[in-house]
Design a protein around this nucleic acid. Sequence first.
DNA 1: TTCAAATTCAAACGTACATTTCAAACACTT
DNA 2: AAGTGTTTGAAATGTACGTTTGAATTTGAA
Lengths: 228, 228
Amino acid sequence: MSVKHSTQHKILDAAQTLFAETGFTDTSLRQITSMAEVNLASVNYHFGSKKELIQAVLQRYLVVLMPRLDQEFTRLLAVQQPNSLSQVLSVFVKPLLELNKVHQNGARIFLQLLGRGYTDVQGHLRWFFNHHYGRVLDKLVLLVQQACPDLPPSELFWRLHFSLGTVVFTMASNEALAEIAEADFNEKVDIEGVILRLLPYLSAAIAAPVTTVTQLSHTAPALASEGI
Amino acid sequence: MSVKHSTQHKILDAAQTLFAETGFTDTSLRQITSMAEVNLASVNYHFGSKKELIQAVLQRYLVVLMPRLDQEFTRLLAVQQPNSLSQVLSVFVKPLLELNKVHQNGARIFLQLLGRGYTDVQGHLRWFFNHHYGRVLDKLVLLVQQACPDLPPSELFWRLHFSLGTVVFTMASNEALAEIAEADFNEKVDIEGVILRLLPYLSAAIAAPVTTVTQLSHTAPALASEGI
DNA sequence: TTCAAATTCAAACGTACATTTCAAACACTT
DNA sequence: AAGTGTTTGAAATGTACGTTTGAATTTGAA
């Protein structure tokens, strides 16, 4: 397995592991080059800066994942009758798991990195992502809109972001959760198991009936009263 | 409004704002003391260290929130017939919004900090939280179990963590989301609005029907084939 | 008013960081 | 084998950080 690795490759491998575990800011180039067994200066030589290294680490997965997702979305959009929500969400599974071909545990690592990217650094990664792949996600929005025609656009916006949060946070704290699950329920859980558990959860969540404030005030009377 | 603020108070106020916006690691004591208009050394004088400052910032809200939640959980547990899931989740609303009495925008800031705490620092905050308030959350698990008797314990474990991810991530990226929502949908969204949108989403998600792998393979044939 | 304790202040300390430098080692063509 | 461009290496640079120090100042009780 893996006879020879270039310096760039070794840096990317070490960087993605440490970034996923500890976050971008809390991982130093010294930790990365030490784990990769390369010289400290080689990061700046090959990637320019730490910021560009972070983007390169993510790009390795994005250039594989996003075209695949785009292809799936386009295929579903071509179908005559609208797809069900769980059909739409299911198309994520295969492209995500194919990231395991990019690198061992690639799917898990990528999703962890994505989570880090949304909370760690302010701005620049989110911009980077939206700028390069915003078009692809527009197709997803369209598909979900077709699957849930009763959902107002603004509600759909929020629910998709809620769902992103679910996925991203779950992956960010994946190691800890998997450990607890194994200890408490004797369940060995891998990334595929987590994704399979996420699908019905997200399907039901996104398609949940829209509740108005007046309806809610029966169960949550806090809001009607008191001008908090 | 607020005639005079002690140094400690000013530090806590500045710290919570910057921590919520930028995260714990990416916020320096110099930024905090500069915003608070106090001397740099006063943080270490009053709080001992940056780590203890972080805990103090969170404690200010936790000592208010957790007893309130505990009280609500205990009340629901005393009811004879099991409560519905949305009833259980609704008890979060009032205690959370009461954090706005602790400080302006307290609810939003607290939830943002909670999100930061789960992703930013590794370990010590999660330990701090579980150690002090684990008992309270056990009651929540019990309540959800009663509300969803068909849900296997391991499935419930995962779904509660999914839900935590939803909330925490949403709050961590709240500013950005609220900006987009306002720009795209002309909707001004405050913390109360987000919480109200979260309730039906989470209710449906946690109570979603449990899907087996064989059922899933109809919509996600990726997993049955290919030994990825 | 006096005096001791609590607080503030400017300055400095030591450490860790990303990045740069430039010479040495390497790879590859001629 | 020589020579050129690429890559690596050890060391240093400058900056930012959390924390410490000790003197100055403020506070509050006697």
